[in-house]
């Protein structure tokens, strides 16, 4: 067992883990944050996407012990429980960009990371950002539309400022 300390959704957390436990399993089982989903456990579906020091990565492809000292954001950290949804989450709802919701946390985080770096991402950039996130329900079109709504709103805000 190895003691691992990290920051998750802004809070310090500590747990003991076998080296073989994936970061995704630790987030779910040790930290109780079950919004990080496991669709494949071998790195292809993107359901387990988290932000590791701000960057979207797959948490099933990291060991929990590797996260020592890291700062992690999961879907639970995107909007606080009693606060409203983010603009992106709201756009998902408005565009019906989720059905079963299983891929949704990964999608939201992948796009969250994109907009942090590139608030006015175009459709190509949006598609590339979620190209490694599989969705079996929506056909992606509404997800892309939701992201484009956010990009356009960001664009409008930017042009108002200048």
């Amino acid at each position: 067992m190895t003691r691992t300390t990290l920051t998750i959704n802004g809070r310090r957390a500590q747990f003991d883990t076998e080296p073989r436990q994936s970061l995704a399993d630790a987030i779910r089982n040790e930290l109780g944050l079950t919004g990080t989903h496991l669709g494949c456990e071998h790195g292809v579906c993107g359901a387990c996407t988290i932000l590791l020091d701000g960057e979207a990565v797959r948490s099933c492809l990291m060991l929990a012990v590797q996260a020592e000292g890291a700062s992690i954001t999961t879907i639970e950290g995107v909007s606080l429980p009693h606060a409203g949804l983010t603009e992106l989450q709201t756009a998902f709802r408005a565009r019906h960009a989720l059905q079963c919701g299983f891929c949704t946390p990964g999608m939201v985080l992948a796009l969250h990371a994109l907009f942090t770096n590139n608030p006015v991402a175009d459709e190509d950039a949006i598609r590339e950002a979620i190209s490694g996130n599989l969705c079996r329900c929506t056909g992606y079109q509404p997800i892309v539309e939701a992201a484009l709504d956010v990009s356009r709103a960001n664009q409008d805000r930017l042009s108002q400022k200048t």
């Binding site: 790195g43 996407t49 990565v57 492809l61 990291m62 994109l114 590339e128 190209s131 490694g132």
Partner: peptide
């Protein structure tokens, strides 16, 4: 090669 999250690692 892969996707942004796989290239990030």
């Amino acid at each position: 090669v892969g996707h942004p999250p796989t290239r990030a690692r």
